[in-house]
């Protein structure tokens, strides 16, 4: 049983870890684009801004389980199969990049206008303002946002079990629910609770430390 638990935990870790990393990278680019192109942004392009916003909102309104099914052809095209941990990671990464985009966008927008004007008055380029002022100042908020998203993604990863994604959630459904192995279920819940606690605590710690 222990081996089963460890293996599932590692699967969860891989799914959540990869989708968070990919999601953060995509989220950073998309959020920067949104912040730049917004009507009062540094590079106002209302058309790009609303198009991107509509895309994000449309996909965010699809329940994750339906998103997985909807993405099956694309997943099959990319991964070669629609079943298994790698196949489950793709929709997870997609969902997390949607969430992370909004988190980063909000964090960048909370940076006081005065600081952005410092950059402008210094003759900084738009990219410098985004990277060296907004990302720098918004980092504590981004970290706490990413903490929340990663906990959400752990929840999503259980749903990914429906396409044989593996991981703790999948294990809980197969052994706990379908076979009614209550002891295992309790263990899974304990592991999940401690895992989430660890993430939340380290996220809080990092965010506070970065705030200065």
């Amino acid at each position: 049983m222990a081996q089963l638990l460890i293996q599932s935990f590692l699967e969860t870790l891989v799914m959540v870890g990869i989708s968070m990393i990919v999601g953060t990278l995509i989220g950073m680019v998309m959020a920067s684009l949104l912040v730049l192109t917004q009507p009062l942004g540094l590079w106002p392009k209302p058309f790009i801004f609303s198009l991107l916003g509509m895309f994000l909102n449309a996909f965010r309104s699809i329940p994750f389980i339906i998103l997985i099914i909807l993405m099956i052809p694309f997943t099959r095209f990319c991964v070669g199969t629609a079943i298994g941990t790698p196949a489950a990671t793709l929709p997870l990464a997609f969902a997390s990049s949607l969430l992370i985009t909004r988190v980063i966008e909000d964090a960048l927008n909370t940076v006081p206008k005065g600081l952005i004007e410092v950059g402008k008055a210094l003759g900084a380029s738009n990219l410098q303002i985004i990277m060296k002022i907004q990302f720098l100042e918004g980092l504590p908020l981004i970290i706490s946002g990413l903490t929340t998203v990663s906990i959400n993604i752990i929840g999503f990863s259980a749903i990914a079990g429906t396409v044989g994604g593996g991981g703790l959630g999948d294990l809980a459904i197969r052994y706990g629910y379908q076979r009614y192995d209550f002891t295992l279920l309790i263990f899974i819940v304990i592991i999940l609770i401690s895992f989430v606690q660890c993430i939340q605590m380290s996220g809080d710690f990092l965010s506070t430390k970065l705030k200065k």
């Binding site: 004007e117 410092v118 210094l122 002022i133 980092l139 705030k211």
Partner: peptide
């Protein structure tokens, strides 16, 4: 430039 609210980067 010197601003009213200093506009220093807090981090």
């Amino acid at each position: 430039n010197v601003f009213q609210n200093f506009n220093l980067l807090s981090r």
